[in-house]
Design a protein around this nucleic acid. Structure first.
Lengths: 237, 237
DNA sequence: TGTATTCTATGATAATAGTCAGTATTTTTT
DNA sequence: AAAAAATACTGACTATTATCATAGAATACA
C-alpha cells in the first residue's frame, strides 16, 4: 500500500527471488503487491491458529516461523520451519479448509499478508504460478511422508542428528571446519522438531558434545563433525 | 481405447463419481478416457517404484493399493491405502520429481493408467479440475502432518486403535452392533500402517480381542466395540 | 498330496525413551 | 536489583517397544 512507506513492494523485495513468486510477471507481482500488507512480528507472536479460517497467505520477508501442530498430550510437533521467501498457509486456503496447524514467530520477522482474493486471483490468472505452487505442495507432501517414515523407523538419536544437519544446511554459517547454526531454538523446540521429549534432546545433545560432534556457543549449536552426525543419522550413508 | 472391449470409458466408469474427475466436463472426461489404458493387477504386483520417473498417473477402478516408503532398515511405512476412485502418483508428476514412494496391489485391482500428457493437458485446460487436484493435494498434506504428529506423540496402542477405526470407516461393512473390516491385510502390513514392529501388532491385536474390542473372522477383523477403541485411540475423546 | 514358504503367535530379553522430581542457570519482569 | 519465570540440566525409575528365537498354523505350489 503506497501510503505505508515501510511496506516494500513485492517487485523490489529481496526475498522474492527465493520464493514461489519468482516466476510471476511484473504486472502480477504488482497486483499482489498492491494488496499485501507488511507487518512486523516479535518472537512469540502467533501468525495463525489451528482450526481457524484462513483469510489469506503469509509471505516471510525476514525472520523465522515455526509451523506446528499441538498434539492431544499438549506437546508441539513442529512440521516446518519457515524462513525468508517462504509462503505459509496456502495449503489451508487451497484445501478450502481451516488451518490444520498453527504458526508462531521464532525469530523476529517481517511478514507480508496477502489477502485470499489477491492470491487466488493471481493464481487462477497465471497457470505458470499455479503450477509452481502446486509443485511446491507436491514436494512438501513427499517431504512429510519422509518425515513420517523417519519418525516411525528411526531412533531419536538418529533423528536428532538428522535435524541438526538439516538446520545447519538451512541456517548454517560456515566457519572453517565447523558450521554454526545461526538460529536460537529452545531445547523444547528442538524436541518439537524431532518429535521427542525435551529431556531426551538435552541428554543427546550433551552426548553429541561429549563425542566431539557439536559444541555450544551461547544458545547456538556449532556442528564440529558433520560426517559423524551423518553417520549417526542413518543406518547406511 | 476403443479396440479394447474390456476398457470401460471413464465417462461410464462407476468409480468416477468418487474421484477427482467428478468435476470434469463430458468432453474432458472423454479426452482422458481416449488416452487411458485399463490394466488388471493381481495382489502383490507393483504399480511403480520409488525413485523412478513417473510417466502418468493411475486411477483405481477397483481393488486396493498400498502406497509405501521403504525405510533404511528395510521396513515398509505405508503412507496411504488407495481404493476405488483414488488417483495415485500425481504428486510426483506435479512435483516434477521421481516417485517418492512405491505402490503395490493389496487386493486384486483394475487400474487405469493415464499418460502424463493427457493428464497435464486436461489439468492445464481446466482450472476447475486443477483446483480440485490441488485441493486434494493440500488436504493430503494436512493428513500427513496429522500422521506425523500422531507418530511422534502417541503410543503404538493408541495408533493401532486409531488405524482400526479408520480402516473400519473405509472398508467396513455393517453387521448390527459390529463392523467387519472387509480387507485382508497381513499383520506386517498393519504394522506398516501403524509404524511399528509386526510382533507388537500381533500382541496388541490379541490384547484387543481379549478385551472384547475386536474379533477375528478368518483373516478379517471385526470391530466389536468402536467406542472402546476410540477411547483407547486418544487421550481425550 | 506332500513340501516349502509365508504368516501368526508367544516368550524372554534388551534397549530405548518417557516421566517425575529436584536443582541450577539464565532470562524477563517489576 | 530483586523476584519471578522460563529454561537447562541431572538422576532415578518405569514403561514401552524392539529384537531375537522358536514353534505352530495356514497358504501356496509343484
Amino acid at each position: 500500500m503506497s501510503n505505508q512507506p515501510r511496506n516494500t513492494p513485492c517487485e523490489l523485495c529481496a526475498s522474492r527471488k527465493y520464493s514461489l513468486m519468482s516466476d510471476l510477471s511484473h504486472a502480477q507481482v504488482c497486483s499482489i503487491s498492491d494488496h499485501k500488507n507488511l507487518i512486523s512480528h516479535r518472537k512469540g507472536q502467533i501468525l495463525y491458529y489451528e482450526s481457524t479460517k484462513p483469510l489469506g497467505i503469509f509471505c516471510i520477508n525476514s525472520g523465522v516461523v515455526k509451523v506446528y501442530k499441538t498434539a492431544s498430550n499438549g506437546k508441539e510437533q513442529i512440521v516446518h520451519l519457515g524462513k525468508e521467501g517462504d509462503f505459509l498457509g496456502y495449503a489451508a486456503l487451497l484445501g478450502e479448509e481451516n488451518y490444520t496447524n498453527s504458526a508462531m514467530i521464532v525469530e523476529d520477522a517481517k511478514i507480508c499478508f496477502i489477502p485470499k482474493e489477491a492470491f487466488l486471483n493471481t493464481l487462477l490468472g497465471n497457470t505458470q504460478f499455479f503450477k509452481r505452487v502446486t509443485k511446491e505442495l507436491s514436494h512438501e507432501l513427499g517431504v512429510m511422508e519422509e518425515k513420517l517414515t523417519d519418525a516411525t523407523q528411526k531412533s531419536i538419536r538418529e533423528r536428532l542428528a538428522f535435524v541438526l544437519i538439516h538446520l545447519a544446511s538451512s541456517y548454517g554459517i560456515e566457519g572453517g571446519d565447523s558450521q554454526k547454526i545461526d538460529l536460537i531454538l529452545t531445547r523444547e523446540e528442538i524436541a518439537g522438531i524431532v518429535g521427542t521429549a525435551t529431556e531426551s534432546v538435552i541428554r543427546l545433545l550433551s552426548e553429541f558434545k561429549k563425542d566431539g560432534l557439536i559444541e555450544f556457543e551461547g544458545k547456538k549449536i556449532i556442528i564440529k563433525d558433520k560426517r559423524g552426525l551423518a553417520r549417526l543419522s542413518d543406518f547406511y550413508a
